[in-house]
Design a protein around this nucleic acid. Structure first.
Length: 367
DNA sequence: AAGGCGTGGAT
DNA sequence: TATCCAAGCCT
């Protein structure tokens, strides 16, 4: 059934043409073994492949680079990462987003170190069992690190394939057809380079807007281009509008400059990360009700609110600040973070914005 | 199985 | 300024 539909799509593109393009145009990335080194027998380190793939989930190469460098410097092996304190992993991940990835990263490292002697499973099924490793990541690691002929499908590859086949079925319904096409196209030789070539093509040539079809190695095979609909693919359902929630943040500053922080609950939004005390956020919330203040101090509202957009809602947070005497005890579950420690705390970006507004200095750039 | 889950860059 | 979206996973 699906096979017939795929056959009718009649892909004429050849993996060899894409690999030739990749040999000349592969992006140089810190976690990647370039094709010429690959040809001389250099093999990628599964730890680095895994770490980069998790960081790259829904995250741009530009954002990942410095985090990848910091992580591999601090924790050169999966065993080193397994031995790290989770708190330190969250601090190092702060600013990168989707914090469940960091929690799963630590769990996964422990599994690999404790149950597999520090060696990653070398096939898709084994990798798929690891926390934080889904269908895409398992296939990518299997292909790139272990030379397995795995069908790697990410957002780039969905775009490339729907255009190549002029596939007008909207996502996510088109996913099975796309997978079938990728399985047919993936070569026995160099499956990892093929996957990376498809992703590079999607990232640099077959871009969401204004694709550079003139530079594409597959331009003559592209049904979407022939039909003049390439740029409109893949089709997607329109996204739901984001509601706006409101809340308050309380920035208490001790005379020595220390700021009062606490830890958020271990799961859910910004789970396990640190913050100045905040109220719950809702569409109806008041932003001038001091009932939730962590300490009985003289609170003053900061001039500007913090605006921040999460995946599924906008947040407007009023920032209230107060000076605290030097002998003020931190409430249960809270601690005073001295200025020298603040940059290193596990503070997500939205909370760095709140602190910057409360303290009255520019936000430390997320690392 | 649809919705929760971050952030910054491009347009 | 507002919207889109990037190498997805989990429940």
């Amino acid at each position: 059934m699906l096979g017939q539909a795929v056959d009718r799509m009649n892909i004429t593109a050849n993996p060899a043409e894409l690999l030739t393009w990749y040999d000349r145009h592969a992006r140089r990335l810190p976690w990647r073994v370039p094709p010429e080194d690959r040809a001389h027998g250099v093999v990628p380190d599964p730890y680095r492949v895994w770490l980069s793939e998790v960081m790259l989930q829904q995250t741009t190469v530009a954002a990942v680079r410095s985090y990848f460098e910091a992580f591999t410097k601090k924790w050169p092996t999966v065993k080193a990462l397994a031995r790290a304190a989770e708190e330190d992993v969250m601090k190092a991940w702060a600013g990168l987003g989707y914090y469940s990835r960091a929690r799963n990263l630590k769990k996964c490292a422990e599994t690999v170190a404790d149950d597999f002697g520090g060696r990653f499973p070398d096939d898709e099924d084994g990798l798929r069992q690891l926390p934080g490793v889904g269908p895409y990541t398992a296939a990518a690691i299997a292909a790139i690190a272990f030379d397995r002929k795995a069908a790697v499908v990410d957002g780039n590859i969905e775009r490339v394939m729907t255009r190549l086949a002029a596939l007008e079925t909207p996502l996510p319904q088109a996913k099975p057809q796309i997978r079938a096409l990728v399985e047919k196209l993936t070569p026995e030789g160099r499956p990892g380079d093929f996957a990376q070539a498809m992703m590079d093509l999607g990232a640099t040539i077959c871009t969401p807007r204004k694709p550079a079809c003139a530079l594409c190695p597959w331009t003559s095979h592209c049904a979407g281009r022939k039909q003049g609909i390439a740029e409109s693919l893949p089709r997607k359902a329109p996204k739901a509008e984001k509601p706006t929630r409101k809340g308050m943040a309380f920035v208490a500053i001790r005379e020595d400059g220390a700021v009062l922080l606490r830890r958020r609950p271990p799961r859910g939004l910004l789970g396990g990360m640190s913050e100045p005390p905040t109220t719950p956020w809702s569409e109806e919330a008041e932003t001038d009700n001091l009932g939730h203040a962590p300490l009985p101090l003289e609170w003053q509202r900061s001039a500007a609110d913090v605006r921040h957009t999460f995946t599924h809602f906008h947040l407007e947070m009023a920032v209230w600040r107060a000076k605290a005497p030097s002998d003020t005890a931190a409430p249960d579950g809270h601690w005073w973070s001295p200025p020298a420690d603040l940059d290193g705390e596990a503070l997500p970006t939205v909370m760095r914005k709140a602190l910057a507004e409360g303290i009255g200095k520019p936000a430390a750039k997320a690392r």
